[in-house]
Write a protein that binds this DNA or RNA. Structure first.
Lengths: 212, 212
DNA sequence: CCGCGATGTATCGGACCGATACATCGCACG
DNA sequence: CGTGCGATGTATCGGTCCGATACATCGCGG
């Protein structure tokens, strides 16, 4: 999962570890907290060993003027290689069982802008199926085993059931959207960031949820 | 976390591994899928080594009629010890940072019937605080960094934000309930609080469950 | 009689986390 | 002027938990 996320982010622009972590937190904030360095750095090393990313020299100009007196341990910028892009395409296109758990689905979804529509549909339906199964399990417990459980546990299940039903509805909407051709995004985005803007958030009239 | 969950379940009745896994799945179904055996068995061993659980002989009567022809590798039933109950009380009463993440909170909440009211309140408020922080992070991203992200990522954040707001409301309700004295349904209180006597009385008979 | 699914115990490699250590840089505050 | 402190930045270590796998028993239907 981490591998897929890193490859995806580096496809947008080269980054060093710290930055990667922050971007990841911004992109996956809805799914999970920040990634740990204890996962990040070993994974970077693994990806580099596999040839999917490489170190990019930082500050290529004016290099010799500071001759590494203290062996200058600067930031290490990574960029994705051609093989890395291939790997990303392969990972994003195939769906195993881990694609449908909370984290896996979140990562895949976060890169839907780089995923073709058929795959998007497949993943959304797989996720829906999985959530429906969880929902049925919770209904079973609430129905058949309710008297074995205390009030707090029951309340927990009810809240979980509610969340399941809500997510299924959300997925239904997304699936309907995909099928009707008009996705909530442009299917081919090549955006590389870098924009700085302090005051621009949406002007008043813009309603969020509507599907034109 | 697993340690706490196992100790809590064994407090209700002795069980073997397979059963433990199923009960755990039923009790925590809203939070996470079934626990893996790759975690369960090593943890059981660890708990046993620490003296918090012991193996209980199965089928104490009519033992000699099947003389273990094939060294009978039967089920191993575990039961909690007095030290184990103490350990449970200690774990359930203290709250670290991991108490407020999804899994940690779920496990603690699932055993609220064995937690005193002050601790319940503390945990609910800690969880609320954490979710509020996540919510603010998502609002920030949706407000300030919206133009850097594609439509799918934004939709993911919106769904996450919605879930946060919903959970905060749920927690508010529970907190209000706790403060007003009447718990969701069964104010079955008077359970383990701080560190007190070692010799705890049998749990208040709230859950009927018989083993065949 | 045989297969097959449920029950049941167990291990192994790998993914990921939390704590920790350490170094640099800009800047606010005395 | 210096000094300390929070942000930035790289890195490792031990531990928890997961997924795959192996293997053995039991009851039941074909």
């Amino acid at each position: 999962m981490l591998e897929l996320a890193i490859l995806g982010l580096l496809q947008e622009s080269p980054m060093h570890g710290y930055e990667l972590r922050k971007e990841l937190a911004a992109k996956l904030g809805a799914i999970r907290a920040a990634i740990s360095y204890g996962s990040l750095y070993p994974t970077l090393r693994r990806l580099q060993a596999a040839g999917w990313i490489t170190e990019a020299a930082e500050t290529p100009a004016t290099a010799e003027e500071v001759p590494a007196l203290t062996s200058r341990r600067g930031r290490v910028v990574y960029k994705i290689t051609a093989e890395g892009k291939e790997r990303f395409a392969q990972l994003i296109g195939q769906a195993g069982p881990e694609t449908y758990d909370d984290t896996g689905f979140g990562v895949h979804f976060a890169f839907f802008a780089r995923t073709d529509q058929a795959t998007r549909l497949r993943i959304l339906e797989g996720r829906r199926r999985k959530i429906e199964e969880r929902r049925e399990g919770l209904r079973d417990v609430l129905g058949r085993a309710a008297e074995r459980l205390d009030a707090y546990t029951l309340e927990l299940q009810r809240h979980g059931l509610d969340a399941c039903e809500r997510e299924v509805r959300w997925l239904e909407e997304l699936i309907a959207n995909e099928r009707s051709g008009r996705a909530p995004t442009v299917p081919r985005a090549g955006t590389v960031g870098g924009r700085r803007d302090t005051d621009s958030p949406p002007p008043p009239g813009e309603s969020r949820k509507e599907r034109p």
